[in-house]
């Protein structure tokens, strides 16, 4: 069964707000599910279709998957400017509890919002600094075309004080201050799946959202095989 479902997302100041998630629950699948933490910002758009293609394949192998929105992105009603990477992690921990996630799969920068204590996989994780640098560079190039001169240092300095708009995303000062220092947390129960194992260039590299059935097959197979091995171990 495929449905958009709501879940109570914990708020930093206490309380919860309803956020959306896409859930694929095959008939007869156990209640436990695979929580998928989406890629961030522009990469989230480019990889949305690929992510859901992977979920479809997993569901076809009897694995329930849930893809929640990160607060402030996609269908979320919360303002992105008020979010911090720490808020995202708390949100994904709330999602993991609500959906009884037994494992997780993070996509690219989603690794930086991974819930603590959930085993699983980071697919092609990217450091906050690297993702930030690329967004800063896009802004600098766009500004230059418009005849304005900006530098990474001056943008970051201003961003840490007042927030910053990068690639169309309005990020708050706290977000800018924290994000550049983040890398995917080392956890013994979380393995990294690199792009090399998928047989083609990462779809986040493309200028437009794309799809690649072979890569979706490969990623889904890695997860499905590993989950089956863990069940029989």
């Amino acid at each position: 069964m495929r449905e958009m479902t709501q879940w109570p997302c914990p708020l930093p100041g206490g309380g919860t707000v309803e956020e959306w998630a896409l859930a694929l629950r095959p008939e007869g699948a156990p209640k436990a599910c695979l929580l998928i933490v989406p890629a961030l910002f522009d990469e989230g758009n480019k990889l949305r279709r690929f992510t859901v293609e992977v979920m479809r394949r997993l569901a076809a192998s009897g694995i329930a998957c849930v893809l929640p929105d990160l607060p402030g992105l996609n269908e979320s009603i919360l303002p992105l400017e008020a979010q911090t990477p720490g808020d995202w992690q708390v949100a994904m921990e709330g999602a993991a509890r609500h959906f009884a996630a037994s494992h997780m799969l993070t996509i690219r920068g989603g690794a930086l919002a991974a819930p603590r204590g959930v085993p699983g996989w980071y697919y092609a994780p990217v450091a906050g600094a690297s993702q930030m640098r690329q967004m800063l560079r896009a802004r600098i190039l766009a500004a230059r075309e418009a005849g304005r001169s900006e530098t990474q240092d001056s943008l970051l300095e201003a961003g840490r004080m007042h927030g910053l708009e990068l690639a169309g995303y309005r990020l708050g000062a706290d977000f800018i201050a924290e994000f550049g220092g983040l890398v995917a947390r080392e956890e013994p129960a979380v393995q990294t799946i690199t792009q090399d194992g998928l047989g083609g260039p990462g779809l986040w590299l493309r200028p437009e959202p794309g799809e690649d059935a072979g890569q979706a097959d490969a990623l889904a197979a890695i997860i499905a095989v590993a989950l089956a091995q863990r069940e029989t171990a």
């Binding site: 967004m135 560079r137 896009a138 190039l141 075309e145 590299l205 200028p207």
Partner: peptide, 14 residues
């Protein structure tokens, strides 16, 4: 046409 500022930023990173 694909090579807008975002794509150039990605190209340089690669």
């Amino acid at each position: 046409p694909e090579l807008d500022s975002m794509a150039v930023a990605g190209l340089l990173t690669e």
